[in-house]
Write a protein that binds this DNA or RNA. Sequence first.
DNA 1: TTCCTATGTTGATAGTGTCAACATAGGACC
DNA 2: GGTCCTATGTTGACACTATCAACATAGGAA
Lengths: 208, 208
Amino acid sequence: MPVTERAYHHGNLREALVDAGLRLLDEGGVEAVGIRSAARLVGVSHAAPARCFPTATSFLAAVAAVGYGRLAAALTEAVDAAEDTLSAFRAVGLAYVGFARREPNTFRMLTHPSLADKSRHPDLLEASNRAFDVLREAVLRAQDDGHVAPASPAALALTAWSTVHGISALIVDDQLAAKGYTGDPDDLADEVLATLFLGMRPVPGPPA
Amino acid sequence: MPVTERAYHHGNLREALVDAGLRLLDEGGVEAVGIRSAARLVGVSHAAPARCFPTATSFLAAVAAVGYGRLAAALTEAVDAAEDTLSAFRAVGLAYVGFARREPNTFRMLTHPSLADKSRHPDLLEASNRAFDVLREAVLRAQDDGHVAPASPAALALTAWSTVHGISALIVDDQLAAKGYTGDPDDLADEVLATLFLGMRPVPGPPA
DNA sequence: TTCCTATGTTGATAGTGTCAACATAGGACC
DNA sequence: GGTCCTATGTTGACACTATCAACATAGGAA
């Protein structure tokens, strides 16, 4: 028997269940991910997940934590690919929206109402904070280079996060046309980010 | 028998169920609202709601629509109380955040993942649009008075909506401290809105 | 007065999460 | 080297949910 599979008596059941949860999420949306379905997919009894995940929401939290990890990776990649701190700041915003559009179900899982109280799920909180840190540090570096006003970095980062999250939510739920915007979602993301950057600029008015 | 109660054979069962749903929402959060619980609360059989709401999510949609109505009312009230168009624009942003803080469960219901596809729930879509329109028109009026850049109103309104929604989501889920902001949520809302207004200003840089 | 439809009821089915009791494999310890 | 002991998983049950089909009935239409 191969050691890589069916070795659930050795601790990789949790990982296998999370993988199954991600597949369920991808295929059937947030509603489709449950411990019994995941157990069925893994090929284990319906009560086995209870050992790894004492409650159903703790399972959701584990799946969402992976989602935040993917988001953090996407943001990090965008920052690393940028040439200067200002374009990095811009890139991280676009990467956030791009991630939401690429993985809408994952994006929705991140704000699942059952996971609203993140203090109950330390791993999820940490994964969320790690993704946020990528954006926060991009703001900090742009601030160091004088591209962003010398205000509280925490507030600025929260502003940026709020903006990109909000516009992503609208785009993912197809609310643009209903709200009177008929153009390309990417163009809107550009416009929204431009407004954001304008508001975060250091001085009241640079030359042009 | 009083005509106001127990007259469910005459068409007000739907309303009674929605009321029950709102109570369930308020007391037990988004997870607590279901058709069977609502039926129990109203004092009707478990399958009665099926006549008014063919599916469970259609019931959620009806409850959420009332939530959007409340939101629209709060925004309208804020706009009406303002003295000029610029302060009205500011007031509507603060009112959005204030509503989210006052009714966190209602706020979460508005973005419930089951309701992501609003095209399936015309009433919900309309209620959502109505709330958005209050903010959109506030932007338009501020633009007419020269307080906002002459860009696409739809894009500007979506930017503002995104920002206030994003910051509300973070505040409601108690994510401020975890994200490095230790101050008062209201102060943060002020800061975020200030940045938003700065970015939406008409010219690159007014005097001060 | 006689239907007919709108509105609820009853009962059944399939799915979910959670708990308690039981089985067992593998390492720990003497 | 043999004996427990614990971690891991199974089985079965319970309560809850949504959804469907079959049935009942009240009130208006013809």
